[in-house]
């Protein structure tokens, strides 16, 4: 018997999303105090988009079973995925407490086999290719599953990402949804200053046969509305303009927070200043 899947909410509750994301950021900062490094800024950058995917787009049968698929191609952003999976009851809190310890199962990149993780990533520029393969497989199986994949802008410097983008266009994969965390920073530099030919981005996807749209990636409402309004028939790229480290003022656009964990004092300041992010 065919299973019925709960469709995503047509009306997305943005206020609830903002509250959730505030909680996620606090949780990540808490965990940061137990490890030397955890890629906080990359996690904060893609937070609202990941929340929209999990809470507003992917369909599920019950709270812990998703019908659609999600890949964190920018594997170093996995803290965002972990805290969302925790809140959904898919990842045990005890595992987040054991993050990056020999006793636990969670490392600094997603690992297939762990709850809620579809593929092992961490080397950049792999996720889109895998997502293309998954989307094609779902098409062959005549399934209505959608594939969602989160990429960073640095990942689009990898040639492999563009091979995948071109193939998705060739195949007209209408069940593929790319979310780009366009924070303008790779690990080292501001790309609009140092790697200017990277831009424009939207036009590149369009040239490869994608439907592409740019929105504010921290505005959950706008992200949801844009994704929900996609026209179909082609792969879809939602280009989320974001700020690396968003939500903690001293981390925003400051490269060291790509990897470093805040010390005690910095943590206290971050927690004190945390507020809901809406844009």
């Amino acid at each position: 018997m065919a299973k019925t899947w709960q469709a995503p909410l047509a009306a997305f509750d943005a206020a609830a999303a903002r509250a959730r994301c505030l909680g996620y950021r606090r949780r990540i900062l808490d965990i940061s105090q137990r490890v030397g490094a955890l890629h906080a800024a990359p996690a904060f950058s893609c937070m609202e988009m990941a929340d929209v995917i999990y809470h507003g787009l992917m369909r599920r049968g019950n709270p812990t079973e998703f019908h659609d698929l999600f890949l964190m191609s920018k594997g170093h952003g996995c803290m965002t995925q972990y805290v969302i999976l925790e809140e959904l009851g898919i990842l045990a809190s005890a595992e987040l407490e054991r993050y990056c310890t020999a006793e636990g199962i969670l490392g600094a990149h997603p690992d297939r086999g762990n709850p809620g993780i579809e593929a092992s990533t961490g080397s950049l520029g792999h996720g889109l290719g895998i997502a293309v393969g998954m989307a094609y497989a779902e098409r062959l199986k005549r399934s209505d599953r959608q594939v969602y994949v989160m990429l960073s802008d640095g990942e689009l410097q990898e040639g492999s990402s563009w091979e995948a983008a071109m193939m998705a266009g060739n195949l007209r994969l209408d069940n593929l949804n790319l979310f780009l965390d366009l924070n303008d920073f790779s690990g080292l530099e501001r790309m609009s200053e140092t790697h200017t030919a990277f831009y424009p981005v939207r036009e590149k996807f369009e040239a490869f046969g994608w439907e592409a749209l740019a929105v504010n990636g921290h505005d959950a409402q706008a992200v949801h509305a844009a994704a929900a309004a996609r026209r179909g028939q082609r792969p879809f790229a939602l280009i989320g303009k974001t700020v690396k480290g968003r939500g903690v003022a001293f981390m925003e656009n400051v490269p060291i927070w790509h990897y470093r964990s805040p010390n005690k004092e910095e943590y206290a300041i971050a927690i004190r200043d945390l507020a809901e992010v809406s844009s």
């Binding site: 520029g125 410097q157 080292l188």
Partner: peptide
């Protein structure tokens, strides 16, 4: 796209033409 540790940063400042960062593109 790897951070220039130690004296690599000096090299980057003093001889910017001889420190090339391709980005995340190996």
């Amino acid at each position: 796209d790897i951070s220039p540790a130690g004296a690599m940063d000096k090299l980057r400042t003093e001889f910017p033409e001889r420190f090339i960062n391709t980005g995340v593109a190996e």
